[in-house]
Amino acid sequence: MAESLAAHEVPLVGDFSQATPDGALAGVRVGVITFPGTLDDRDASRAIRLAGGTPVPLWHDEANLHDVDAVIVPGGFSYGDYLRAGAIAAKAAVMSKVVEAAQASENPLPVLGICNGFQILTETHLLPGSMIKNDHRKFICRDQTLRIENNQTFWTSDFEAGQDIVVPLKNQDGQYVADAKTLEALEAENRVVFRYVDVNPNGSRNDIAGISNERGNVVGLMPHPEHAVEPGFGPSSSGFGTVALRGGADGLGVFTSVLNKLVGA
């Protein structure tokens, strides 16, 4: 079995002994925040490592970003979704530093919020709008097709504009809402970064799966690219056997984007 995998050059899952794709990328340090109730910090860190970068754990209670080059606010149920999803995490010590660095006039910090992280970024007002319960009132978990509507952000520059990717989606409060004026501005300014294709899984306005701020350094999305970074372990929509094993890594581009962008800058 191992022999046939090697023959097809399918990397072993999480084999960190391999040389990184580009040595320069390893110098990029990406902070991954852990709050009480965060679930996907380890997967986000793996995604950064598999993309070739260096993940740096950040703690919610410490107002220190440890000189990281970018930050991921991962998914989960921070503070048990008490009050509103993301509301309490948004007031955490580390988030005050994230907000400050993301809004810096020079070299604004690239920030990615995934799922609960997206909710946290809306609660800090780095991103507009908010998330409410899914319109069908159920928790949903599915392989979701997304269209990359904007490949000019820090987190999508390795994709083609208009490219479709498939990554897992899992949420309860995933319905993106904003007032008509905000939605118009997001569309007009090309700030809808990811859009649901085929199915709108939660009733989000304009099929919005993810958005960015004006400068494109802050991006939030509901689905989970960090769960689709290892061949054979993410959603695989075509093929079987070793062909299928090579699929399922559609989310990796999110993480290579920020690394390549920061190295190139």
């Binding site: 409410i132 319960k133 899914n134 319109d135 069908h136 009132r137 319905q175 809402v177 009733g203």
Partner: peptide, 12 residues
């Protein structure tokens, strides 16, 4: 919740 925001829990 604002009147224009759908309230799925209220509906249930």
């Amino acid at each position: 919740l604002k009147p224009e925001i759908l309230d799925p829990q209220g509906k249930a």
